[in-house]
Design a protein around this nucleic acid. Structure first.
Length: 611
DNA sequence: CCCCCCCC
C-alpha cells in the first residue's frame, strides 16, 4: 500500500471549530487514561504533519482497535467521524477531539516514522475570519423548549442554551447515543423513549427523594436516563413512551452494569440545565422503533430458565392484587398474575409488580405485548415476570395484535390446551435432559418422591381403547362417574347424581427416543395437547364418529415433541411398576434443543467453544 | 442521589 498523505494543517482548522470531512492524520502515540471507573479510555497524540493535538480521545466503541494493536505509533488513519468539545470550566477548559469512527490507512510498521516536524496547534495563528461553529450562534427561537425552570434566574443563560439547541437541530447536527461520554458535554441527541418507569421514592442513610428513569434509543444505541427530585417533577408528564425527543445537557457517568442491561457503558442524569424537546413525527426519520422478536407462548415452555423473551397474547384472566412480605428482605411486595393466551392455544402466567400491578385493568381483556419478559421456572412450569428491562405494551397497533384480537373475540381462547405455567411438582430447578434408557438405568422413580426429566421423543403408538372416561361434571372433581342407565351419572366422591358428565382423557402411548422406547400416560391436559383436540371433541368422536377419531389419533403418529415426564414406582397389588406420566409436551424448539446437544457433545468430547 | 423485581 502506498503511504497516504496527511491532510496538512488540518488540526488547527478542526480545533478552531471548522468541520473538515475525513481528515487523514498520523498517530504519534496512544495511552490509556486513568479514570476512576474501570472504563477503558485512550488518549491519542495525533499529527497532521504540521500540527499535533495531544487532546484527542478515542470513543470507547473503538477501544477494540487499540486492543488489537491497530493504532500503534506512526499509524496513518482517516477520521470518518469525530467531534470537538470543551472539557473543564468555561474559559479555562481545553478543547478535545473525540474520534468516533476511523479507518486505518497504513499500519505503523508500514509507515515506520513520524512525518514532518509537527508543533502544537495552539501555536498556529487563528484564521482571520474564524469559522464559528453553528452551535454557538444564536438564531431566533423556533419552538418552545422545556428548559430550566423559572427558579433559575439566569435568563440570559437560558436564551443562549435555547439558541444552542435549536441551531444545532436546524443544522441537523445531533449526536449518536453511542458517541456520548463524560469527556464532552456539548451534544444533542435525538432519541426515542422506549420505556419509562413510574415515579419512585427512596429514603436511606444518604437522604431521600424521588426519581424516574427512561430508556432512550437511536440508530447507534441506547442509554438509560434518570431524573431526580425537581427534574423528576418537571419532566415526568412531558416524557411519553414511544415519542422521539431532543435531549441535551445531561450529565454522563459510567453505568452500573449490575443494574442495567442496556448496551451502553454510560448512563445519564438530568440536571438543572437539561433540555428536552419533542421531535415531531415528520422529523423522526432514522430513529428506529423498538423491535419485538415475538415468540409463540407455546415455545416459552422449551426456553431456558431466567432467559428473557418477547411475546404477545390476550390477557384472558386477571388475578387479584396480592401483597406479601419477602422472607429474605422483609420488604412488602405487591404483585398481580395475569394469564396470557395466544393462537398456539397456550396460556402463560405473566406477573406484574408494584404500581404496574396495582393499576392494571385487564377486565377488558386487552392485547399485551411483552418485551424482555423474564422466564421463571417453578415446579416444572414456566411463567413470565416483569423485571429489570421488561416492558409491556397494551393493545399495540400491529398486525399480530389485530389478528389475536379477531381470533380471541371469535372464541379462539375458549379451548386453551397447553398451560405453560402449570406446575408439575418438579421442584424449582430446571428439568434435566435424560434419555429413556438412562431413566431405567438410573432407577428413576424408586425414591419417595417422583423424579422429573425431559427428553425428545417420537410418538409410536397411541391407544384409542380406554383413552377417555366420563368424569364428574363438578369443576374441582374429576372422578369417574357411574352411568346409572337412566340419564343420571353418579359420582361416588361427591355422593351425588348428575344429568351430565364431562369427558376426561387418559391416553396411553408408546414413545421412543434414540435409546429406547416406553409406554407413558397422558392425563387430560397433556392428552389435549397431544391430540390437539379437547377431551370433549375426542370423547364425541370416539363414541359417535369412528372415522373422525381415527383421524385425530393417526394425525399425531410419528410426531416428535419435547416431553416432560414424571417417573414414579407404583404398586399394583403386589407388583411394583415404574410409571411414566407426561406432565407436558411441547413442539421442539430447535434452537434450545441444539444448545442442549452441543453442550452434551462438548461434555462427551471435551471439544468445542467455551459456553 | 436509585439499583428491589421478590412469593408459591
Amino acid at each position: 500500500m502506498p503511504i497516504a498523505s496527511l491532510t496538512t494543517g488540518v488540526i488547527a482548522r478542526i480545533m478552531h471549530g471548522e468541520d473538515v470531512a475525513q481528515p487523514v492524520l498520523q498517530v504519534l502515540g496512544i495511552k490509556r487514561i486513568n479514570t476512576n471507573s474501570e472504563q477503558e479510555r485512550y488518549r491519542l497524540l495525533m499529527s497532521d504533519g504540521k500540527y499535533y493535538n495531544s487532546y484527542a480521545m478515542l470513543a470507547s466503541q473503538l477501544n477494540e482497535m487499540q486492543q488489537k494493536g491497530m493504532l500503534s505509533e506512526n499509524t496513518i488513519v482517516r477520521l470518518d467521524k469525530y467531534m470537538t468539545s470543551m472539557v473543564g470550566k468555561e474559559g479555562t477548559g481545553k478543547r478535545v477531539l473525540i474520534v468516533t469512527e476511523l479507518t486505518v490507512l497504513n499500519s505503523g510498521d508500514e509507515v515506520k516514522s513520524k512525518i514532518g516536524e509537527p508543533v502544537t496547534y495552539e501555536n498556529a495563528a487563528k484564521p482571520a475570519a474564524e469559522a464559528t461553529p453553528a452551535a454557538v450562534s444564536a438564531p431566533p427561537k423556533k419552538e418552545p423548549m422545556y428548559n430550566n425552570n423559572s427558579s433559575n434566574n439566569n435568563n440570559n443563560n437560558n436564551d443562549k442554551m435555547n439558541g444552542t439547541m435549536n441551531s444545532t437541530l436546524n443544522a441537523g447536527l445531533t449526536h449518536p447515543i453511542a458517541s456520548l461520554s463524560p469527556y464532552q458535554n456539548k451534544w444533542v441527541i435525538k432519541a426515542r423513549v422506549t420505556a419509562k418507569t413510574a415515579i419512585r421514592t427512596w429514603s436511606n442513610a444518604r437522604g431521600e427523594g424521588k426519581l424516574f428513569s427512561m430508556d432512550l434509543m437511536d440508530e447507534s444505541g441506547e442509554i438509560r436516563a434518570t431524573a431526580f427530585k425537581e427534574q423528576c417533577d418537571k419532566f415526568y408528564d412531558l416524557i411519553e413512551v414511544d415519542n422521539v425527543y431532543f435531549f441535551s445537557k445531561c450529565q454522563l457517568k459510567p453505568a452500573n452494569k449490575q443494574f442495567s442491561q442496556l448496551k451502553n457503558d454510560y448512563e445519564m442524569t438530568f440536571t438543572g440545565e437539561t433540555m428536552v424537546q419533542l421531535c415531531e413525527d415528520a422529523e423522526n426519520e432514522g430513529i428506529p422503533e423498538v423491535k419485538f422478536d415475538l415468540v409463540p407462548i407455546s415455545q416459552v415452555a422449551s426456553m431456558e430458565d431466567k432467559a428473557t423473551v418477547d411475546t404477545i397474547g390476550i390477557c384472558k384472566d386477571v388475578g387479584e392484587l396480592q401483597t406479601f412480605t419477602s422472607r429474605t428482605t422483609n420488604k412488602e411486595f405487591k404483585k398481580r398474575d395475569l394469564t396470557l393466551v395466544d393462537m398456539s392455544n397456550s396460556a402463560i402466567t405473566l406477573t406484574l409488580w408494584g404500581d404496574e400491578a396495582v393499576n392494571f385493568d385487564g377486565h377488558v381483556q386487552p392485547v399485551l405485548m411483552v418485551k424482555n419478559g423474564r422466564i421463571n421456572e417453578f415446579n416444572g412450569g414456566k411463567s413470565l415476570s416483569m423485571g429489570g428491562g421488561s416492558r409491556v405494551k397494551l393493545n399495540p397497533d400491529i398486525p399480530e395484535a389485530h389478528k389475536l384480537r379477531g381470533w380471541f373475540d371469535n372464541g379462539g381462547g375458549d379451548n386453551i390446551s397447553n398451560s405453560v405455567s402449570a406446575r408439575t411438582g418438579g421442584g424449582s430447578f430446571s428439568t434435566d435432559w435424560i434419555t429413556l434408557k438412562e431413566a431405567r438405568m438410573r432407577n428413576l422413580g424408586s425414591g419417595d418422591k417422583p423424579d422429573y426429566f425431559q427428553c425428545k421423543a417420537v410418538v409410536h403408538i397411541v391407544k384409542q381403547e380406554n383413552s377417555f372416561y366420563k368424569a364428574c361434571p363438578q369443576s374441582e372433581c374429576n372422578k369417574k362417574v357411574v352411568d346409572e342407565g337412566n340419564g343420571q351419572y353418579r359420582c361416588e366422591r361427591c355422593n351425588a347424581a348428575y344429568p351430565n358428565f364431562k369427558y376426561r382423557l387418559l391416553v396411553n402411548m408408546s414413545i421412543g427416543d434414540w435409546t429406547s422406547n416406553r409406554w407413558v400416560t397422558c392425563f387430560n391436559e397433556a392428552g389435549e395437547q397431544l391430540l390437539k383436540h379437547t377431551a370433549q371433541e375426542v370423547g364425541d368422536a370416539l363414541e359417535n364418529d369412528q372415522a373422525a377419531a381415527e383421524k385425530i389419533f393417526s394425525d399425531i403418529n410419528f410426531s416428535s415433541f419435547i416431553f416432560k415426564l414424571r417417573c414414579k414406582n407404583e404398586m399394583y397389588g403386589d407388583m411394583t411398576r415404574n410409571k411414566l406420566n407426561v406432565q407436558s409436551l411441547a413442539p421442539i424448539n430447535y434452537k434450545e434443543y441444539n444448545k442442549h446437544l452441543i453442550k452434551e457433545l462438548k461434555e462427551m468430547t471435551g471439544i468445542g467453544p467455551a459456553n
